[in-house]
Write a protein that binds this DNA or RNA. Structure first.
Length: 295
DNA sequence: ACTGTACCCTGTAGGC
DNA sequence: TGCCTACAGGGTACAG
């Protein structure tokens, strides 16, 4: 579900209720999600203060004053909701659910923070996961070790992409979906960025490699299109297809501006292009693109 | 080393 | 109404 813009939207919603506050109560309703939470999950959080909440790729990282970090991945259907103005001991979740009409069945974790906010993690498919890890081991942890550059920083350059693409026969779609290339892209934003860059998702990634030591125009177009589409999406609170919600419950609105994603059969929106959006399957996932203007 | 497929899990939409 | 299939924003294990 959540790609970089959705995770960043969640981070912005959680930060004000987590930063500077400690975990007062934790209701843990199962042993784990995709992976076990870990044996000392609650013990390493209770009474501990969150110093800051940052994002790396599609991970949320709550840095704690113990030197630990609560690391969270939302998988496909994970979402957080924040409830203010009511201090709710974890034991009273039943009452909370009754009051709010929340989905009890898939509410897996409830944090009650010292500042008074109640934070509920809901995840029907349970592809999400969270664990407490030592901050100093994060960089070498399998979840983080091989991640590529952040697309919104200054690290994403045509030269970087070109170097990564040398000799790669995989499709551009698969190349950009790979978190080792660029961290945080997913199906929606890869499709949208490729359309904006005018590149076919079927083309081999090697087409981005340098020619005579110079970055290709294709690589340059991509490193412009990717941050552009991500920034606009963050600005609109991400894309809500079904699950994604900001922690305050609002939807994201970027889906209203999709050029190709989930628009099979629609006329291509590029000025002067008379093509229409096609759907194909690559790596077992849908790809949406315009074969007329994406070459 | 690289590439593609199957799989984890639940819910929903669409065809019949 | 029900049943069936296909598909969904993610990542990983494995086979070739």
């Amino acid at each position: 579900m959540p790609e970089l813009p959705e995770v960043e939207t969640v981070r912005r919603g959680l930060e004000p209720v987590m930063r500077g506050h400690s975990f007062e109560h934790i209701l843990q309703r199962r042993d784990g999600l995709r992976f076990p939470f870990g044996k000392n999950f609650k013990r390493r959080l209770l009474g501990v203060t969150v110093q800051r909440l940052r994002r790396r790729a599609k991970y949320l990282v709550a840095e704690l004053d113990t030197g630990d970090a609560l690391v969270i991945h939302l998988g496909m259907s994970g979402r957080f909701s924040v409830h203010y103005n009511r201090k709710m001991p974890a034991e009273t979740l039943g009452a909370y659910i009754y009051e709010t009409g929340a989905d009890q069945k898939h509410d897996h974790i409830v944090f009650t923070m010292s500042g008074g906010a109640t934070i509920v993690y809901n995840d029907p498919r349970r592809f999400g996961f969270m664990q407490v890890l030592a901050q100093r081991e994060l960089d070498q942890h399998p979840w983080f070790r091989a991640l590529g550059v952040e697309p919104l920083g200054s690290d994403l350059t045509a030269e970087y992409l070109a170097a990564k693409a040398v000799g790669r026969k995989v499709s551009l779609k698969a190349f950009l979906m790979d978190q080792r290339t660029i961290a945080g892209l997913g199906n929606i934003y890869v499709c949208e960025a490729l359309h904006r860059a005018g590149l076919s998702p079927k083309r081999s990634a090697a087409c981005l490699a340098t020619v005579n030591g110079q970055p290709t125009r294709r690589a340059i177009r991509l490193v412009e299109a990717i941050p552009d589409v991500l920034q606009k999406a963050v600005h609109l609170g991400g894309s809500t297809l079904r699950d994604h919600r900001k922690p305050d419950g609002d939807k994201g609105w970027f889906q209203e501006t999709f050029k190709v994603y989930d628009r099979t059969g629609a006329p291509c929106s590029r000025t002067g292009c008379r093509g229409q959006v096609k759907r194909i399957v690559q790596q077992g996932r849908s790809t949406f693109y315009c074969s007329a203007c994406q070459r």
